[in-house]
Design a protein around this nucleic acid. Structure first.
Lengths: 215, 215
DNA sequence: ACTTGTCCTGTCATGCCGTCAGCTTACCGA
DNA sequence: TCGGTAAGCTGACGGCATGACAGGACAAGT
């Protein structure tokens, strides 16, 4: 399915090659956390990995290509976010818990992949389809599940029909992603983490069900 | 207050100099809209402005410095966003209208300054205090006004005391900013602009007042 | 016309980019 | 043990952007 890992010039990578390749990816990941994306240079990544720039170009077409690789890997891990929504209840106390756990999971994931998500976000916002696709891949599962939840509640007559499930789900997910991306900003600003989560959960609950939660 | 416009080496810029400077800023702005931030080079900006790279460096320390300049200008214009919230009513039909106009104004502003806001966002997310400050400057006015609105409603007993006004306002503003930044994404994805706005307005209204709007 | 201060550019050292030929290393069959 | 072959790595190079400087072009006042 995945095929073998290949170098740019078409050779198949063996054990040693894959190790080098992975080391380059790891170092790039660290660089992205510690310095602005704009300033990340191939030569620095190579030096950090204890190899030469030429080696980098053997495995990746350019920095962006390597970033995409890291992002893809993260996207796989992000599929687990679906579990935060699908098959959960939105009624009563269980509904409140669903909201809380969704927010919690989201913030954790974002904190963990902070740097790379920032780059993905930028790429997507700039119109790069590949980055956009990855961003979708991560958000889609959650968004779709939330969309379904709203549709279901609408069918039961518990939510106004004027609400567009997709728009609502998309907006909420965008909010979560954005707030997660600026978590540091919020704290600097005077809003504590502990306050943030319940408020986000409240907004999610309000958006999906249209009602205040029963805690 | 503003002082005179100065070159990097300390001289005061005259008429001609300011024109050149402005032209460079304009061209940089266009470049940011049409190509990834990472790939914007001084030499391209200079060429586009019909001048030389050396001239660019006479007015700006680097690309980032020039971007900050554009961003500052935009921030001034963004102060007008305050008017969308301050002194408005959140009760009854007027409340719904407030929500709608806030969303409308926000999306328009973001659409207009699309490219530069993206860069400011990235800079802020990467921890650059100067960009963070500008982002604050734009969002602060709206956020503060919204915070006050929530506090007021809380004082009247119309909103739960558990709600943190600042966290709620910050989350809503982050949502608006994020959705605005990915407007293209939403449309590609199947959500129409016309659906998006009322849903965002609904979420804002729910978040601030805790109640469904009366339309 | 002359002076003065502003404005622009040609040029240069530096450093990164991206590519190539060629060297080293690991694996494998004889 | 010994080549043979393919994988793996690097030094070196032309090309280009950067950022700094000194000096020439220009406008405005005298």
């Amino acid at each position: 399915m995945t095929g073998q890992v290949r170098t740019v010039d078409g050779r198949v990578a063996g054990r040693r090659g894959q190790a080098t390749r992975q080391k380059l990816l790891d170092c790039l990941g660290e660089m992205l956390s510690s310095s602005p994306y704009r300033d990340v240079k191939v030569i620095d990544v190579a030096r950090k990995a204890g190899t030469s720039p030429a080696t980098f170009y053997q495995y990746f077409p350019d920095v962006e290509g390597a970033v995409l690789e890291i992002a893809e890997e993260m996207a796989k891990e992000g599929a687990a976010l679906t579990a935060l929504v699908s098959g959960r209840s939105w009624v009563g106390k269980a509904g409140w818990q669903t909201s809380e756990e969704l927010v919690e999971g989201f913030l954790d994931f974002w904190r963990k992949h902070d740097a790379i998500l920032r780059v993905v976000d930028l790429g997507a916002a700039e119109g790069d389809k590949r980055f956009y696709k990855i961003r979708m891949k991560i958000l889609n599962s959650v968004t779709n599940s939330l969309t379904d939840a709203v549709k279901e509640l609408q069918a039961k007559g518990k939510v106004d029909k004027e609400v567009s499930p997709a728009a609502m789900a998309g907006s909420l997910v965008a909010m979560l992603a954005s707030v997660a991306g600026h978590q540091k900003g919020f704290t600097t600003w005077g809003v504590k983490q502990a306050e943030l989560k319940p408020n986000l959960a409240l907004l999610v609950h309000l958006g999906i069900t249209g009602k205040k939660p029963t805690r």
